[in-house]
Computed example of a mutant assay.
Amino acid sequence: MANITLPSDSMSYPELFHVAKQDPSLSWPEQLWWAHYTFWDNDVLATGIITFLAHELIYFGRCIPWIIADALPRVFHRFKIQDTKPPPSVGDQWTCVKYILAIHFIIELPLIVLFHPMMEICGLQFTPPFPKFSLLATQVALFFIVEDTYHYWLHRAMHWGPLYRAIHRVHHQYAAPFGLTAEYASPAETFLLGLGTICPPLLLGYVTGNVHLITVLMWMALRQLQAIDAHSGYDFPWSLRCLVPFWGGADWHDDHHRYFWGNYSSSFTYWDILMGTVAGPRGKAMGHNPRR
């Protein structure tokens, strides 16, 4: 907890940030963090605001480069994975924006508001100081592994006929995905897959008592970036899959949309390789039958 004496009068963000400098042990991001929670004087509201705004800014901000790439097909055509199909139209992009905003406000916003009470029940921390980077990085890596496992089995189940028709069909509306389609899904799918993102930090916090909200925000941001890039429809020589072993990337997930079966994991490739569900020509070359 920050060692700061707070005046009785209400103060603005800049004034609170200046007051936070009373505690020299806090870095400037921690001072901003303290000022934010003190300004709102309501932990549930303060957590909800910072989480929802971060979600919207990161999601739509990361989609902008892919929208630009789709608008300049002559420049980026050689990096397009399904290069025989036309780029999404302005109408397609706008349809996605409207649908995703509705999902964000109707489904995700209530869950974000409920997150702080769940966070307190599970013992997650949200006051300064922030965790060390080594702990943050280790926990985020663990969340990626756990979520990928959850995503693989749930996603694979969603391709079973009744579940596909009831839940997953919306996401497969576009056989050639583009950035904005990362969260283009039914409300039920949004909720179920969202559990794979928020539950690992809550469970780890409950068990260890050593998970901070800033770690959760970093994890959620990286998971969003991964999902958007996997749906971008573009594969570059410098893509992360070229640097990180077993990383799926856009070319991996694009095959899932193109061939419908296989490549069910969210981030990595090892579950599909181990379970014989690699999609497309790569799967056939490995003797896989993704319909199993």
Rank of each mutant, 00 (worst) to 15 (best):
residue 121 I to K: 03
residue 121 I to A: 10
residue 122 C to I: 11
residue 122 C to G: 11
residue 122 C to Y: 07
residue 123 G to Q: 06
residue 123 G to W: 11
residue 124 L to W: 01
residue 125 Q to I: 12
residue 125 Q to G: 02
residue 125 Q to S: 15
residue 126 F to W: 15
residue 126 F to E: 11
residue 126 F to D: 11
residue 126 F to M: 11
residue 127 T to W: 05
residue 127 T to Y: 05
residue 127 T to L: 15
residue 128 P to W: 04
residue 128 P to K: 13
residue 128 P to G: 15
residue 129 P to A: 15
residue 129 P to I: 07
residue 129 P to Y: 12
residue 130 F to W: 15
residue 131 P to E: 13
residue 132 K to V: 06
residue 132 K to Y: 03
residue 132 K to H: 12
residue 132 K to E: 14
residue 133 F to L: 14
residue 134 S to G: 02
residue 134 S to M: 01
residue 135 L to T: 08
residue 135 L to R: 14
residue 136 L to Q: 03
residue 136 L to P: 00
residue 136 L to A: 02
residue 136 L to S: 02
residue 137 A to V: 07
residue 137 A to L: 13
residue 138 T to I: 10
residue 138 T to V: 10
residue 138 T to N: 13
residue 139 Q to C: 09
residue 139 Q to W: 11
residue 139 Q to G: 09
residue 140 V to N: 05
residue 140 V to E: 08
residue 140 V to Q: 03
residue 140 V to P: 01
residue 140 V to F: 06
residue 140 V to M: 08
residue 141 A to R: 13
residue 142 L to V: 03
residue 142 L to N: 04
residue 142 L to C: 10
residue 142 L to E: 06
residue 143 F to L: 08
residue 143 F to D: 11
residue 144 F to K: 05
residue 144 F to Y: 13
residue 144 F to R: 08
residue 144 F to S: 14
residue 145 I to K: 03
residue 145 I to H: 00
residue 145 I to T: 08
residue 145 I to S: 06
residue 145 I to V: 14
residue 146 V to R: 00
residue 146 V to P: 04
residue 146 V to C: 11
residue 147 E to T: 07
residue 147 E to A: 05
residue 147 E to C: 03
residue 148 D to H: 04
residue 148 D to S: 01
residue 148 D to N: 10
residue 149 T to W: 02
residue 150 Y to Q: 15
residue 150 Y to E: 10
residue 151 H to F: 12
residue 151 H to P: 01
residue 152 Y to I: 13
residue 152 Y to E: 12
residue 153 W to T: 02
residue 153 W to R: 04
residue 153 W to I: 01
residue 154 L to M: 12
residue 154 L to R: 11
residue 154 L to D: 08
residue 154 L to A: 07
residue 155 H to K: 09
residue 156 R to S: 06
residue 156 R to C: 01
residue 156 R to G: 02
residue 156 R to F: 01
residue 156 R to E: 11
residue 156 R to Y: 00
residue 157 A to W: 04
residue 157 A to H: 02
residue 158 M to L: 15
residue 158 M to V: 05
residue 158 M to Q: 12
residue 158 M to P: 04
residue 160 W to R: 13
residue 160 W to T: 10
residue 160 W to N: 12
residue 161 G to L: 14
residue 162 P to H: 00
residue 162 P to C: 02
residue 162 P to W: 00
residue 163 L to V: 07
residue 163 L to M: 15
residue 163 L to C: 07
residue 163 L to D: 10
residue 164 Y to N: 09
residue 164 Y to R: 09
residue 164 Y to I: 02
residue 164 Y to P: 02
residue 164 Y to V: 01
residue 165 R to I: 00
residue 165 R to L: 00
residue 166 A to C: 10
residue 166 A to K: 13
residue 167 I to L: 10
residue 167 I to S: 00
residue 167 I to E: 01
